[in-house]
């Protein structure tokens, strides 16, 4: 019976970490960015840009985060960057909902 070398184990962990980041984490963060950016995007002359653009650009937001997660040389930095964006938007949404609650 052969046991995996520490290098193999580390590489496998790294692969799984990247798969988790590029899959469910990126999707969740893209959803948070879509919902949260409705709060900070300018409304524009018709007062609708902040509502329409996040929905229209959701595929682009997701694709940018996905390729960032897949191609980043330093996986930890990619985690920090993507999770940071997600947390920032989650905080914005939470603050807005708390302030607008009756």
């Amino acid at each position: 019976m052969t046991s995996a070398s520490p290098a193999d184990t580390s590489s496998r962990h790294s692969l799984w970490s990247r798969v988790v980041l590029a899959g469910p984490v990126v999707f969740a963060v893209a959803c948070l960015v879509m919902a949260g950016s409705a709060l900070w995007l300018p409304a524009g002359p018709a007062q609708i840009d902040n509502l329409v653009l996040p929905i229209l650009l959701f595929p682009a937001i997701w694709a940018a985060l996905f390729f960032c997660a897949c191609l980043a040389r330093r996986l930890t930095r990619a985690w920090i960057f993507i999770a940071g964006i997600g947390l920032l938007h989650a905080a914005l949404i939470a603050q807005h909902l708390l302030h607008s609650a009756p």
């Binding site: 409705a38 509502l51 329409v52 929905i55 229209l56 959701f58 949404i93």
Partner: peptide
């Protein structure tokens, strides 16, 4: 993907954040 996610995810999510979940109000505004 915009057409699929727009109605299944985008409209409910933005309506939840901006209009307290009222999708009719969001569409009326748009």
């Amino acid at each position: 993907s915009y057409f699929s996610f727009g109605s299944a995810l985008g409209i409910p999510a933005v309506a939840m954040v901006v209009f307290g979940g009222d999708q009719d109000k969001l569409i009326e505004t748009l």
